[in-house]
């Protein structure tokens, strides 16, 4: 069965490594913080100026001066630090942040990503996404395998305006975990429990490499 949003977040959380600084985008990526494996210490960065971001506050303890990049009220954990936006993107461009997780509308089999603009619709802006994808050491995209119209979001080339080129290395969808090798395309690594390889093949429009046994995700 295809994963729900929490399942995708749970699988991505397995990629976290001890000592990493991590930036989580809005949507499914935010949920990753709920599934940090035991024994793994990571620190969350929010690009509006905090390292050591904690969970949402208890009711009545919200602070208008403490929000994340999604403008949600948050808390600061022991060891947290606060800084300005230039410093924040400085640490992003200088690759001090080991992992960026963000959503996407389309990903290409060369690692291009489109996630900020649909021509003809109201454009809200790229926020920090272009800075993050241009510089991040590791980018994992969290998204549904197909869009609402049932069309594949894993393409040979993005059709929407790009956010970044050749930057995505891993995609976790409701159906599969895939690495991206710009030479060969999407490399199928794992499938969601009960999801067949045939279904993943049918729903992947870009080049897809299926080699050997493809294990089910263990969640």
């Amino acid at each position: 069965m295809a994963l729900d949003k929490n399942g995708i977040a749970r699988r991505i959380a397995q990629e976290l490594r001890n000592g990493w600084y991590v930036n989580l985008g809005i949507g499914i990526p935010t949920l990753v913080a709920n599934y940090i494996p035991d024994g793994i210490d990571v620190e969350f960065q929010s690009e509006n100026g905090i390292l050591g971001m904690g969970p949402f506050p208890f009711e009545g303890e919200e602070d208008a001066d403490l929000i994340n990049a999604g403008k949600q009220t948050i808390t600061a954990l022991p060891g947290a630090s606060l800084f300005d936006s230039a410093t924040s993107f400085g640490m992003i461009r200088a690759r001090k942040v080991q992992l960026t997780v963000l959503g996407a509308m389309e990903v290409s089999d060369r690692g291009d990503i489109a996630n900020w603009k649909i021509p003809g619709r109201m454009v809200k802006g790229m926020g920090g996404a272009m800075d993050l994808v241009a510089s991040a050491e590791r980018i994992i995209v969290a998204m549904q395998h197909s869009n609402r119209e049932g069309e594949s979001k894993l393409l040979s080339a993005c059709t929407l305006p790009l956010t970044g080129v050749g930057c995505v290395k891993k995609v976790v969808t409701d159906l599969a975990v895939l690495d991206i090798d710009p030479e060969r395309g999407f490399i199928l690594r794992e499938r969601a429990p009960g999801v067949s390889i045939d279904e993943i093949v049918a729903k992947t429009a870009g080049r897809l490499v299926v080699e050997g046994e493809i294990p089910e995700m263990s969640l």
Binding site: P55, F56, P57, F58, E59, E61, E62, A64, D65, I67, G70, K71, Q72, T73, I74
Partner: peptide
Amino acid sequence: EKRIEQRTVRPR
């Protein structure tokens, strides 16, 4: 006023 745009809380 310091208005909050997205008030998010967790249950006690």
